[in-house]
């Protein structure tokens, strides 16, 4: 039985007694949508390595264990109810620049943009982020650097994304700060909690890109101040 199926039973029992169920987010239940989000025994997504809450199974626990369940905790992720939190801050960070500006119909023939296999693979590794927010929940500073750096890197590894890379990194980092996420102090807790194996190497890459962009590009976006 999966962890969420266990919670379904808890909720069904509650309802049978006329009580309110307990609110938690979930959708795909196969580790890809990024909706499930529980801190289990102090660990975002629970004790299993590189596993989302929905893919955690009860066989990881022993009979009689006490299990403590909490929501993601971060100022930028206000709790809606019980364990459901508001993660729209992540959407706003993407809105700030996490895309390639290409309108439908304006694309060139696909094979005219060759991409070295190694770059395509690295871009994919970064793009595997499911936007769950476990990295934020794991960090004592509630930093969103792992999430933001994954998106920045995904696009900047590819020629299609390079055109806007500088503008993108500046805008996304600015939005991240505005949303109230904390700074990165190199604790690597995010990497340990991430269910998709996103590594802090991307944070380093993003920092380099950010620095470069501040020097060469920031004036254009924000003016001389």
């Amino acid at each position: 039985m999966s962890f969420l199926e266990m919670l379904d039973i808890v909720n069904e029992e509650q309802m049978k007694q006329g009580k309110e169920g307990f609110a938690f987010d979930h959708d795909c239940r196969e580790g890809i949508c990024g909706m499930c989000s529980l801190v289990i025994n102090g660990m975002p997504h629970g004790p299993d390595h590189a596993t989302t809450t929905c893919q955690l199974h009860m066989r990881k626990f022993k009979d009689g264990d006490t299990i403590v369940i909490e929501p993601w905790r971060a100022a930028a992720f206000p709790v809606i109810r019980d364990c459901a939190v508001d993660r729209t801050a992540f959407d706003r960070i993407i809105q700030a620049g996490g895309f390639v500006s290409v309108n439908t119909g304006a694309a060139p023939e696909a094979s005219t943009i060759p991409v070295p296999k190694a770059d395509a693979d690295r871009a994919f590794d970064a793009a595997a982020c499911i936007g769950c927010g476990a990295c934020v929940a794991a960090c004592k500073n509630a930093s969103a650097m792992l999430f933001v750096s994954a998106k920045v890197s995904h696009l900047s590894f590819l020629p299609q994304g390079k055109v806007e890379a500088k503008k993108r990194v500046l805008a996304m980092v600015a939005q991240m700060d505005k949303e109230g996420f904390g700074n990165c102090t190199n604790l690597y807790e995010c990497q340990a909690a991430c269910p998709k194996g996103i590594t802090v190497d991307y944070i380093a890459k993003m920092n380099r890109e950010y620095l470069g962009a501040t020097v060469t590009y920031a004036e254009k976006v924000y003016g001389k101040d």
Binding site: V100, P116, F124
Partner: peptide, 22 residues
């Protein structure tokens, strides 16, 4: 065919051959 063009332009990291093509 247009879909593949569109998605590649958006940065969808499709699997590639060593020569860099899809």
């Amino acid at each position: 065919n247009l879909i593949i063009d569109q998605c590649v332009a958006q940065g969808v990291p499709f699997g590639r051959e060593y020569g860099g093509l899809l």
